[in-house]
Design a protein around this nucleic acid. Sequence first.
DNA 1: CTGAAAGCGCTAACAT
DNA 2: ATGTTAGCGCTTTCAG
Lengths: 350, 350
Amino acid sequence: MSDAQRDPTPRPRRSRATIEDVARVAGVSVATVSRALRDLPNVANSTRERVQRVADELSYRADPAASRLATGRSRSVAVAVPQLNGWYFSNVVAGVEAVAAESGYDTVVVGMGAIGKRRGLLEASESIHRRVDGLIVVDITLTPEELDSLHRKELPVVLVGPETSNVPSVGIDDVAVGRLAAEHLIELGHRRIGLVHGPLHDPFEFRVPHQRQQGFEDVCRDAGIDPDPRIHVPGNFTIQGGYDALEALLGAEHPPTAVFALADEMAFGLLHAARDRLVDIPGQLSVIGVDDHDVAAVVGLTTVRQDVAEHGARAARVLIDQLNGEEPDLSREHAPVTLIQRSTTGPPPS
Amino acid sequence: MSDAQRDPTPRPRRSRATIEDVARVAGVSVATVSRALRDLPNVANSTRERVQRVADELSYRADPAASRLATGRSRSVAVAVPQLNGWYFSNVVAGVEAVAAESGYDTVVVGMGAIGKRRGLLEASESIHRRVDGLIVVDITLTPEELDSLHRKELPVVLVGPETSNVPSVGIDDVAVGRLAAEHLIELGHRRIGLVHGPLHDPFEFRVPHQRQQGFEDVCRDAGIDPDPRIHVPGNFTIQGGYDALEALLGAEHPPTAVFALADEMAFGLLHAARDRLVDIPGQLSVIGVDDHDVAAVVGLTTVRQDVAEHGARAARVLIDQLNGEEPDLSREHAPVTLIQRSTTGPPPS
DNA sequence: CTGAAAGCGCTAACAT
DNA sequence: ATGTTAGCGCTTTCAG
C-alpha cells in the first residue's frame, strides 16, 4: 500500500502508432482518420477504406485514455459484488463480462470484501467515478444516500438482486421462490419446517433473504402452519453456516422434519453435517435449497433453480442500453424460477 | 455489437472539480496541487496540508483518464481466464482483485470464452493494450508469438499455472500433485488406477494436466505398475466430463479400482455418476481429486489441496512489484500442496 | 467531404 | 518551494 508509489517506473516510452501516424500515411487529417475509423458520416467511401487499411497496417488502435479524456466515456463498466469467489457471484460476473465484451466494454470487478465491509460501495463508487461509464451492483441494497451520490455523479447503475425503486434492476421473484419451496415441502406432508437464512447482521442489508422467507411463511400460514422462529437459524450464506445450522435445528425442542435453506451452499452444509451425524436425508430430514448450484445435481439436492449467469447478462444489457442513450427501464421483469426435485426431499418420517 | 455505437449519449457534462479548481481555491498552481496530492517531494508541509484540505472539501479526485494520458500508466491490471465462472478461476480472480485493490489498482477481467476460443488472448492483448499496466494470465500456455507480442508492447505479464521460461509465474508443483495422488492410492493397495484428464483438444494448450499425469505415472512405474492408456479418459475439467468419464472407465476391459481426477469438479462428476449407477465409493472404486474445492468436504472427497486464491494474490503481488520498478523475479517458488484424505478413497475390493 | 485548431485534465520539465 | 508551460492522443466544433 504505502510503497505502491515508491520507485515509480520511468515513464514507458511510446511505441505504438498514433492517430497522427495514420493520418500522415493515409494523407489525410487526423480528424478524418477519427471519423473514418468510428464510422461517422461525412467521409468518402474511398477515403474511409484507405484510412482503414492504413490503420490496419500500422495496427493502430485509438488510445483509450486519450479517447476517454476527449469524450468523457471510458467504454467500461464496473461490477460490484460482496465477494468475488462464491458460485453465485462469479456466475453473475461471468454473465456481465460476456455481454460487456460483446459490446466492446471492459469489465472491472470490485469486491466489497477487500475494501472493507460496507462503506465499500460509497468509497468504491468514489474511486470508480470517471473510471467507468456505469455500475452494476450485485446483492447490495443501496441506501438512499448512496443512490443520491451515484445520481449526482451521473453514474448509471443497475442492480442485480434486490428490487429498488428508481433504479433498474434484474432478478427473480424471491417471494415466489419461498412459496415454491414451501409448497413442495408441504405437499410432501411436512408440517414442521425449519429455515436457514442469511447472516444475523448483514452489512449489505440484503433484502432477498427476507423475501424468500416471506413467500415461504405465507404459504405455511395458508396451510395452517405457524412459522416457528425457534427453527429459523442463521446460515450466513456459506457452506460452513449451513453445517452449523443443522446442529441448531436438531437441537431445537421440536426439531423440523424438513428445512428450507435460502441458498444451495447452505444446503450443502446441512447435507455435510447430516452425513457426519448420521442423519438420514431425506428419511429423517428433507432439505431444499435455492440456486441449482453446479454441484446440486451431484449431491442430489432438491432446489429452486434460477439462471444466475443470465442475471448478470441481462443487467449488463440494461446498463449498456442505457449508456447508448436509451431511457432506463425501471420496470422489472422477473426471470423464471423452477422447482428441481431431486433426492433430498421426501415425505416426513412417520 | 453493431449498434453499440449508434445513438451515442450526448457527452456528459462536466460536474466534478478539476485540479484547477483546487489550485484556485488553495491559492497555488496546479503543479503544486499535483505534487502535494501525490506526496511528491518539494512541497512545504503547510502547503501540502492546505491543498489536501481543499481537495477534500471539493471531493476532488484526479481524473484517471487524464492522469493516464499524461503518465502513460493506468493503475489497473487485467486478468485473463478461460472462463469466469468455475471455482478455480473465480478464486484466482478474487485473489488478484484483493491485492490489486489494496495497492490502488483496478482489476479488469477478460474471459477468453466470450472472445472466441483461442486467439482470444492475442486479440484481447491487442485491445487490452494501453488499457492496463499489466496482465495476469491464468492457465493458458502462451505461444512464443504471444509472448513476443506482449513483450513488444512492453506489457508486463505474470502467469498463474503453467511455468514458462522468461515469464514470471506462480503456481504449484503439478508433478508433485500427481505423485501425491498416486502414492496415496498405491499405498492403499491399488494397482489398477484410472485417470480423468482435461479436454481432448485444448485450445489453451494447458500444460498442467500433463504434469500431473506425469507425476502420477512416474510413481506408478516406480511401483511396478504400467500406466494403461485405456483407462485414461478425458474429463474436460467439468463436472459433466467427470460424469461421462465414469462410464468410459467402467466399460473398459479391465476397469480400475481407483481413479485420479485431475480436478475436483471432475471428481464430483464421477461421484454423481457412481451414485446413479449404484457404484459404491470407495468400496468398488476409490476417487481422488485435486483442488480441495469448497464442496469437496461436503461430499467427502479425498483430494490434493492447493490454495487457489493465494495463487491469484501472489501473482498480483509479483505483477505490481514489477510495475513499481522491481526486476521481475523469474524464479518460481511453488506453493505447497497437501493430501487431504477423506472418504472417497479406501482399499481396493478384495 | 475535409482540415485547422481548441480543448479534455493532468503531469513533468524547466524556470524562478 | 512554487509557478509556467508544453505536451499526452484523441474528439469535436467551426470553417471551408
